[in-house]
């Protein structure tokens, strides 16, 4: 038994060195100033108009994107589940496959699609429909978020749907439940872990993105992720950048706690 426990030592060392200590450093930098003295200034900096606007916009856009993902993904997962595809892995592959084409290039391709004279507008003009001018606006960023993170919503919901025992649904129907009741009383409650896991997987990356806003929002829209990134790569104010990251982590922790409450056994995990 002891030998087996020893096997974990390389990993524990790795996790301490590259997960725990680095996070500690973010907190150290975030809570000190350039002289190394303790300060809360880097955290309260979030209240400045420029930063709070970026945070509020990021929260708003990622919230909308998460809701859209959920609304698109749930019916999709139900349909895929009902299609009786005998190969579970095939569905997963269809959603993972786009990841093999670089994430930046895929997002950039939306520029070509959305531009004033782009593909979508050409089609709309041809059909004599009003054109869509959303490139370099927050709407394009929401579209980019939905596009990039939709698979992370579909997969956990699909997983928890496919685990539902068909007999439970049949029993409910035998006992006189109609389709709506089956959905609200059986299907929906049983897929809560998947939904929560999907929300976490979409909301966190959407909230903290700086790439999607940079590529699809032009340079006009600044999200909190862009602010943090610029503090590190351009302004080199690591203390301020770390302080703002701590603020971001508060939202991440809230999300983690929520998913821990609703998804105790990790049932809704992507894998």
């Amino acid at each position: 038994m002891n030998k087996k426990k020893m096997l974990g030592i390389p990993y524990y060392f790795w996790a301490a060195m590259f997960i725990v200590i680095p996070l500690g450093m973010v907190f150290y930098y975030g809570l000190t100033d350039k002289t190394g003295a303790f300060t809360l200034e880097n955290i309260t900096a979030i209240a400045s108009p420029e930063h709070s606007k970026a945070l509020f916009l990021a929260l708003l856009l990622s919230f909308i994107a998460t809701i859209i993902c959920l609304l698109l993904a749930y019916p999709l997962a139900m349909i895929l589940c009902g299609m009786n595809v005998n190969q579970h892995s095939f569905i997963v592959l269809l959603f993972i496959l786009p990841m093999w084409m670089n994430f930046l290039l895929r997002t950039l391709a939306w520029q070509t699609l959305l531009e004033k004279t782009g593909v979508i507008n050409s089609v709309l003009t041809f059909l004599k429909l009003p054109t869509l001018n959303i490139i370099n606006t927050p709407y394009a960023i929401i579209l980019g978020m939905v596009y990039n993170f939709l698979p992370f919503m579909v997969l956990p919901i699909y997983n928890s749907l496919s685990k539902i025992d068909g007999n439970v649904i049949n029993a409910a129907k035998d006992l006189g439940a109609n389709n709506v009741q089956v959905f609200t009383k059986i299907t929906l409650p049983l897929t809560v872990p998947g939904i929560i896991s999907g929300i976490t997987m979409v909301f966190i990356p959407a909230l903290t993105t700086f790439v999607i806003s940079k590529l699809l929002g032009g340079s006009k829209v600044l999200l909190i992720g862009n602010v943090v990134e610029e503090e590190f790569t351009q302004a080199s104010n690591w203390h301020l950048g770390s302080g703002l990251s701590i603020v971001l982590m508060i939202f991440i922790i809230i999300n983690m706690v929520l998913s821990a409450i609703f998804d105790k056994d990790g049932e809704g995990s992507v894998l």
């Binding site: 990356p205 903290t208 700086f210 999300n255």
Partner: peptide
Amino acid sequence: PMLNADIV
């Protein structure tokens, strides 16, 4: 590392 934001 999975749940935390990539940027952090």
